[in-house]
Amino acid sequence: MSLDKDQVQQIATLARLKLKPEEHAELVDKLSRIVDFVDHLSAADTEGVIPMAHPLDVAQRLRQDVVTEPNERDRYQENAPSVTEGLYLVPKVIE
C-alpha cells in the first residue's frame, strides 16, 4: 500500500470529507492503487519540458470595469439551507 490509514485521514481532513470506517478502509486500498498507477509518470523523461497548465496558448481576455450585476439576493438565496436577514448562516466561527 503506497498510502496508509493516517495519510488517507489527513487527506480527507484537508478535503473536508467525513469518511465512514468502511469507506476509509476501502480508500486506503483504492487510492493506493490509483497512486501506484499514476506513478507510471515517473518513467517519462521530462527534462526541460515546460509544464502545460492549459490546452490554449493564448492570453487572458479582459473585461471592462462596469457594473453589470443587479441585486438578486433573494433569488440566489432560495437554494441556501440557512439564511437570516440576508446573511448565510454557519455554526459560530471563533477566531
Binding site: L3, V8, I11, A12, T13, L14, A15, R16, L17, K18, L19, K20, E23, E26, L27, K30, L31, I34, V35, V38, V90, P91, K92, V93
Partner: peptide, 26 residues
C-alpha cells in the same frame, strides 16, 4: 463548522467523486 463541512460533503458526494477529490488533494 468543521463538522458541517465534513459531514455535508461526506454525505453529499458519492464514492467515485470522493476518490477523485482525495486523489486530487493528494
Amino acid at each position: 463548522l468543521f463538522d458541517l463541512y465534513c459531514r455535508s460533503r461526506g454525505e453529499g458526494f458519492g464514492d467515485e467523486v470522493k476518490r477523485r477529490i482525495m486523489t486530487g488533494t493528494y
